[in-house]
């Protein structure tokens, strides 16, 4: 199904990113790395389903040129923290309580994963999380890691 994979080639230049005041996300520090940005919330059931997968990605690509950032969009950070504690997760979390980052990346469904190549370009956007698509999600990362 083509529906889950949409290719976004949107320019997310600094000049369009002046959204609402929000948590910061300076991706420049990850230049040269493949970045997997996962937008999630504590109230989103498929997000919960995706966490074990994200953990797996994180550990599987640990030695590679790969960074996974879980961007939480809960309005109330304590809910996110409660969720993470229950999930026993130690993924790197970016708190985006006002949705500024989500707006920048034009997030249209929860969860949404944005896969950014080593060149800093958004290469894949996974809208939603479908367990049967996990091999595809992973293939996208491998492809970008091997692109160099």
């Amino acid at each position: 199904m083509a529906l889950v994979t949409v290719i976004a080639m949107v320019s997310v230049g600094g000049h369009v990113a002046h959204a609402a005041p929000s948590a910061a996300l300076d991706l420049s520090q990850y230049h040269g790395k493949v970045v997997y940005l996962d937008f999630w919330a504590s109230w989103c059931a498929p997000c919960k389903l995706s966490f074990p997968f994200l953990e797996k990605l994180q550990s599987y690509y640990a030695g590679r040129n790969f960074v996974l950032l879980a961007v939480n969009v809960d309005h109330d950070r304590t809910k996110a923290d409660a969720f993470l504690r229950e999930a026993g997760s130690n993924l790197p979390i970016v708190y985006d309580t006002t949705g500024g980052i989500a707006r920048t990346f034009n997030v249209k469904a929860m969860p949404t994963s944005v896969v950014i190549g080593a060149d800093g370009r958004v290469r894949y956007v996974h809208s939603g999380f479908f367990p049967d698509q996990m091999p595809l999600y992973e293939a996208h990362i491998s492809e970008l890691l091997n692109a160099k």
Partner: peptide, 16 residues
């Protein structure tokens, strides 16, 4: 889309 441009503006402290 360069990484440098990708910095979403920060009005608040970095929360990574």
């Amino acid at each position: 889309l360069t990484a440098n441009l990708l910095a979403a503006t920060c009005a608040q402290a970095q929360a990574l």
